[in-house]
Amino acid sequence: MMPTQTIKYHPGADRLTAFSAGALPLSQALCISAHLQYCQQCRRHLTTLNQVGSQLFSDLPPMEVSDKLKNRILAQLDEPSQTKGLEQSGDSVSPDSSQQPADPHKKAAGNLPRCLNTLIPDGLKALPWKHLSPSISAAKLCNDVNGSKVEVIKIKPGGQVAAHNHTGEEITLVLEGSFSDSAGVYNRGDIIFRNKDDKHHRPIASQDAECVCLTSVEAPIQFTGFFARLFNPFIRRSHYSS
């Protein structure tokens, strides 16, 4: 079980609802899923919200289904590929066999949430890190079809991200260490949301440890300092090129 005691920043009710409904862009859903693995409170909320979906589902007007479809499905039950997983697991009564990972507590190396297993198969160290500044590196995990980019950001102890505004929404989830900005201090599992109304967001990693965050950025961020502004075209290009 992952630590849950220090989590102070959660997704809002409407966002968790959209997550439960499967109606969030995957880039956002990934960040929420990572938060859920740290946060028991939100996992409980999710269980309840799934029941809302379940009830709306069972209230749907039933639609007539053809016998042809039924026969097609029944015929598929015999295909070996469909039952392979079951045979391999041996005892079919066992509640947590074949479909689960061999070790249920296997993490993506270190202490990462398991939803990142596919994107970070060999741990943080093996990621293709790129230095953005002396104190910040980033590694891209994936692009969502809505243009969002999912990255892992690493900030050295005491390192500071240049003040920036957001042109779209930025979701940040702390994976390791902690950071702060003018609004608060964020620890492992905390998830925060910033958009274009949040001016001059200026995160600083804590002095005692490196801070690693999962981020999903809807559109490139804008740096607001004079010199930093000169770099903006490059930032935009790198957002879309890679």
Partner: peptide, 8 residues
């Protein structure tokens, strides 16, 4: 990735 790996 998103749903099945959430801690039971």
């Amino acid at each position: 990735d998103i749903f099945d790996h959430i801690e039971d």
